[in-house]
Simulated assay, not measured.
Amino acid sequence: MDKKPRDPDARDPEKPFSLADFEIGRPLGKGKFGRVYLAREVKSHFVVALKVIFKEQIEKYKLHHQLRREMEIQTSLRHPNILRLFGWFDDDERIFLILEYAHGDIKPENLLLDHKGRLKIADFGWSVQSSNKRKTMCGTLDYLAPEMVEHRDHDHAVDNWTLGILCYEFLYGNPPFEAESQKDTFKRIVKIDLSFPPQPNVSAEARNLISQLLVKDPSKRLSLTKIMQHPWIVKNADPKGVCLI
């Protein structure tokens, strides 16, 4: 049955979630700030992933703002390809995030597959709920857009760049601008030092899509609408599994 934990917004404030509401199963992952466990809510038997974050680590690395932003954004999002955050609770030492359960990860680490093989986007720690331009630089170095490397204003067009990097890494096994040092990686990104090694399984259409996404001028990158109309996407995408926000 497609049950889910109690809606945290509708719960009795006198009876918040607690660890007693869940049966804890096997560990699913381990990170610097905590661990993730398979869990099942006692009343509904709904299976979730319980992300346990240690407050001591949040204090040490001053991540209060980032964690709060991740929780606010992920709780408010409702989309079949975005990992749900059902709610949260805490005790003296830990914060518990009640997440939709997804099976084994694929790289990069914030893309997951659920039990039906549907793609789920997770980890919104660096996300924003605004269309305004930003000047901060964050994220995996290999995925940074040129405007971020050069500390220029940037907007949603960085996501289109990231799609190009993601496609390249899935097809070739490594990011396109990978280098021995951060400095050399940044140089390659800014120069758009892009090459396509001989790979018989990568079509000319796939290379064309990537080339139109990895463009230095953000305004000239392929839009989401045109991405969905691109021949490689039209040819290979499952229309039942493609959802756009």
Rank of each mutant, 00 (worst) to 15 (best):
P176K: 12
A122R: 10
A39I: 01
Q199F: 09
L111M: 10
R78K: 15
V48L: 07
F22K: 11
I106S: 14
L97G: 04
H79M: 08
R6L: 07
K30N: 05
L19V: 03
K55W: 01
R207A: 06
K133I: 00
E41K: 13
R69Q: 05
P218A: 08
P239D: 07
I53D: 01
D142R: 13
V242R: 10
D159W: 08
I192T: 15
A39D: 06
P200C: 00
S76F: 04
F186A: 11
P80T: 06
L28S: 12
R69E: 03
K30F: 00
K226C: 04
S195W: 11
K43R: 15
E23L: 05
N160C: 13
F54N: 02
P16D: 01
K240F: 09
F17K: 03
Q212I: 00
F17I: 02
A102R: 04
I245G: 15
S130E: 04
E180M: 08
H230S: 05
L119W: 02
E169P: 12
P146A: 05
G139W: 06
N160V: 07
K216R: 15
I53L: 09
R118I: 04
G139E: 09
K51L: 04
I58L: 06
L77Q: 12
N201F: 11
D217P: 05
L214S: 09
A157R: 14
K3T: 14
G31R: 07
E100L: 08
R69H: 03
E100I: 08
D9G: 11
D114L: 03
F89L: 02
L194Q: 12
S127P: 09
K30T: 08
I106N: 10
R152G: 08
P27N: 04
L224Q: 13
K4S: 13
A206V: 06
D153M: 10
R84E: 11
I73T: 03
Y143H: 15
D105T: 13
P197A: 04
L144A: 11
K191Y: 11
N208C: 08
R118W: 08
L77S: 07
P146F: 02
D12T: 05
Y168E: 13
A179Y: 07
A10C: 06
D92I: 00
I106A: 14
L163Y: 10
R84P: 09
Y37H: 14
I53M: 05
D90N: 09
I233K: 08
I165F: 10
